[in-house]
Design a protein around this nucleic acid. Structure first.
Lengths: 346, 346
DNA sequence: GTTAGCAATCTACTGCCTTGACTGCTAATA
DNA sequence: TATTAGCAGTCAAGGCAGTAGATTGCTAAC
């Protein structure tokens, strides 16, 4: 799409602005009186004609004003990201919440989603990734009375305490304590992703002997734990959809999607590797717009945020909040403490 | 409220029946043609007049039919509980789900709510009580590297594994193992509600010495565990509200209440000690009717179910499902296996 | 106590008309 | 060539009147 003239863009911008506020089709006269009294409405009309031909706007009927089409929202949203402002105060309060509340990957997604949803008043999804490899700090087997043993694994990402395994008879004889010690020797200090059981055992000069089943179970516990720790998806403010959509089946559909974390993850994953993006419709939520942002710390993607609202969203607010989160996350978690001032140009 | 004549009740019943089906005001002619061709519509009209004076029904306007008022629904619902039928097949499939899926107090509330909601197509809340006293089967302290120790308590209601406590220096010296053994001696086999620390220690001839802090923490862990195990509240099918209520603020309000377990518990707790009850409105969900049932096993109340739907609910279906659940629970869990056939009279 | 018949009442629907809001076109203007 | 004023054409929305249909309450007869 070829670049619009400055005046066309100014008119388009004014139109979207007005439509977001009023929810009414915007007429050439409206634009003239409120935004550009220096030209006549007839001039604006001919520009509007051109914009309509270019696919940016539409007319509900002959004698109505114009309404924006998705292309117009996209351009508007892009501009919102280019020039937004936020108060220093908002920024510091965000930063404070992050540094106080966030202790784990789960709490990051919860807290970030809450902040964004509170500030924008739209439904927000936050997907937090865990880039750290899970490292085993300590591992113990605790025998219980009923022939089971509890597996206790302390990792850098938390303690696994809820898995019990059955103890084979031969291990029972050799003693659970011995098994526990062996486990600790083999696994302690290891990254879960790089465990190679055979070579570890060779190092300490032992074969698996009767412990095979036990080791297998431990490995599978670790694997599923890593999988679960890999991502944390959280939604906040799902019910805000009721503020702008009155159609029961739309709402039902929306809320169903909001409670399915796979759909959510797909929803906020940007199509290409882009810092901010915006799309209209997706995953079956037809009438909604989704603004997504990707967050990096130390160069690694640590999460995606997605703000979901009506097409007529307050994109300026959304842009400022999403960028505020970026700044906050950087100031709290980024070691390099990048001081580069926001100088993005597209 | 004095008892209605048989004919009045028959007319009222027909009116509610028809209104539940059609959602349209019911006219005297409708009732005559569909339910009682033996009398004229004029007769029905005069009876309707009387029922209106008694507060059972209402007229939207002069030339409309009549609609039921809450009193009418209550009577109708009561009758539905008195004569309902269910197929043997439904009953056995319910019983099967209970015996297969229910292993804990949580799974009881989840499964029961699911069954009821699936069958009735209304939002269902189930509150399951735990009447069993928590008995400690085994208790262990597992030292970790970071000065903490994990408390491991095996009870008849499950294993507590997620609590770590700090180990005071004096205990560290005496050895965590000794502490662990002492704990096991003191607590093993005890009901949590009847633990009296001093007398237990006297029995085994030991004073608390340096273990005071540890014992205190254990006790508080047990107390909070009992509290948490006391009840389990579960909602199923909350979104079904969208099938009958189109008002966004009603829906928002409803869904907010549905995600607050305290409100839910209040909602399904019957006002008096009654087996089945029905009320219209409550806890801020004005336009809804709630049918509640209380379930007992071996004479003890083990749970309450609440079905929440529009006033125009399919009370017959609801009554049959709620009573089916009762039968199912009895056949699965009741030791006395009561063979008494449903002979309730109010 | 029940019924038929009938006037009265009221909603919902339909079509008609008016009003007001825009647009697009045309011709004049800078 | 770009801009503007003026004006006719188009359309939705709202108000109004009239009609059809449903249902009630009343009355008088059975």
């Amino acid at each position: 799409m070829t670049k619009l003239s400055d005046r066309k863009e100014k008119i388009l911008n004014a139109l979207v602005d007005d439509y977001i506020k009023s929810a009414e089709p915007v007429s050439s006269g409206d634009i003239q009186s409120k935004y550009m009294p220096e030209v006549s409405s007839a001039t604006i009309r001919s520009e509007l004609n051109a914009l309509e031909a270019l696919g940016y706007i539409d007319k509900p009927h002959t004698s109505a004003g114009r309404v924006p089409k998705p292309e117009a929202y996209k351009l508007y949203c892009q501009r919102a990201f280019e020039n937004h402002e936020f108060t220093e105060q908002d920024l510091t309060s965000m930063t404070e919440r992050f540094s106080k509340q966030v202790t784990s990957i789960e709490s990051l997604s919860v807290e970030a989603a809450k902040i964004i949803s509170d500030q924008t008043n739209y439904t927000t999804v936050f997907v937090a990734n865990n880039n750290e490899d899970v490292v085993i700090e300590e591992i113990k087997l605790v025998g219980l009375q009923n022939g089971l043993a509890l597996v206790l694994i302390v990792t850098n990402c938390g303690i696994i305490t809820d898995k019990a395994i059955e103890i084979p008879d031969d291990v029972k004889q050799a003693g659970i304590e011995a098994a526990s010690d062996l486990l600790d020797k083999v696994f302690q200090g290891k990254k879960v992703s790089s465990i190679n059981l055979d070579s570890e055992l060779k190092k300490i000069g032992k074969s698996i002997e009767g412990y095979k089943t036990v080791f297998d179970e431990i490995i599978s516990i670790l694997e599923s734990y890593c999988l679960e720790k890999r991502k944390s998806v959280h939604v906040e403010g799902a019910l805000k959809v009721l503020d702008y959509n009155e159609n029961p089946s739309d709402v039902k559909n929306f809320l169903e999607i909001m409670s399915d974390s796979d759909s959510l993850e797909r929803l906020v994953t940007p199509d290409d590797n882009i810092e901010f993006s915006m799309k209209i419709g997706g995953e079956g939520i037809d009438k909604c717009a989704i603004v997504t942002a990707e967050y990096k710390i130390n160069g690694q993607v640590i999460g995606q945020a997605g703000v979901i609202g009506p097409e007529r969203m307050d994109y300026k607010k959304v842009a400022s909040v999403l960028d505020g989160i970026k700044k906050s996350l950087e100031s709290v978690f980024d070691d390099t403490q990048t001081e580069d001032i926001d100088e993005r140009k597209e």
